[in-house]
């Protein structure tokens, strides 16, 4: 039985910025480090964490039946085929949205805390009830955003809500980074984003076509394609979460020849 379980909310405000992809890959990476990890799909309206993990066809019960005491928690948990340290608690049907309360979410998470080192909660987009329910059960949070003005604006809104609910620490993951676009100042720079959001940067994830391929296969990148650019980023994020001191990859230096431009880039403010 784990005593110091970390319950982490993965949220963004804006939709489609990469919350579910991060949850799945972080889940695999942490499990691989030997940590028992539960991923909880709190996006009842548009669930797809099960799909990304390739577990859709193994779901029998969901969080809904657990709450209604129609089954035990361990009956609803779906263990991952390759990474036995990872389990998914699937979302119930969308009608759960009508009756689910923050306390229900807390009950579920309290049950998960009894047997896992990590509980990752994949949040729905938006700042309405779905988000608020999910937030009620979390201690800390990872805010995912993209280097775009609208995504950063929504992330800022979410951070404000997390702060007023005393969730901490709140850390930042900047997803879909394209080094060349950043170097050419066609995209917000890392500094532009961290400057506004004023959060510690847990990591960057590069834009990577493999993400889309892996999504369609139901195999997170960190499972079988560990050498793809985005997979390395996800693995580093998992390690940093564990407290390892992994230096941030400078994406623009990495893409070579952009060093000088990048330094200029760090100084410009697009906001």
């Amino acid at each position: 039985m784990a005593t110091d379980t970390r319950v982490i909310l993965i949220c963004s405000g804006k939709g489609g910025v990469g919350k579910t992809t991060l949850t799945a890959n972080l889940g695999i990476s942490l499990a691989r480090q030997g940590l028992t990890t539960a991923v909880l799909d709190a996006d009842f309206g548009l669930r797809n964490l099960d799909l990304l993990l390739g577990l859709e066809n193994r779901i029998v019960y969901t969080a809904q039946e657990v709450l209604e005491e129609e089954c035990r928690l361990d009956q609803a948990l779906v263990k991952h085929k390759q990474e036995s340290n990872l389990s998914l608690l699937p979302a119930g049907n969308p009608r759960m949205l009508d009756w689910l309360k923050p306390d229900d979410m807390k009950r579920i998470v309290d049950m998960l805390k009894e047997q896992f080192n990590y509980v990752l909660i994949d949040c729905p987009a938006g700042v309405e009830d779905g988000f608020k329910n999910a937030m009620a059960a979390a201690q800390e949070a990872i805010v995912v955003t993209n280097p775009e003005v609208s995504a950063v604006r929504d992330a800022d809104r979410v951070i404000g809500l997390l702060n007023t609910n005393a969730i901490k620490p709140v850390q930042l993951v900047l997803n879909r980074v394209r080094p060349k676009m950043m170097a050419n100042q066609e995209m917000l720079s890392i500094d532009d984003v961290t400057d506004i959001l004023a959060l510690p940067l847990l990591g960057l994830v590069l834009e990577d076509e493999q993400v889309i391929v892996s999504t369609n296969r139901g195999e997170p990148l960190t499972l079988n394609s560990v050498n793809s650019p985005a997979a390395k980023c996800y693995l580093n994020i998992a390690k940093r979460l564990q407290g390892e001191d992994i230096p941030l990859i400078d994406p623009v230096e990495e893409s070579s020849g952009f060093g000088a431009k990048f330094r200029r880039l760090m100084q410009t403010k697009i906001f």
Binding site: V127, R153, D154, D156, R157, I159, G160, N163, A198
Partner: peptide, 8 residues
């Protein structure tokens, strides 16, 4: 005291 964020 503190940052005033989007929507606040």
């Amino acid at each position: 005291q503190g940052t005033i964020r989007s929507g606040e």
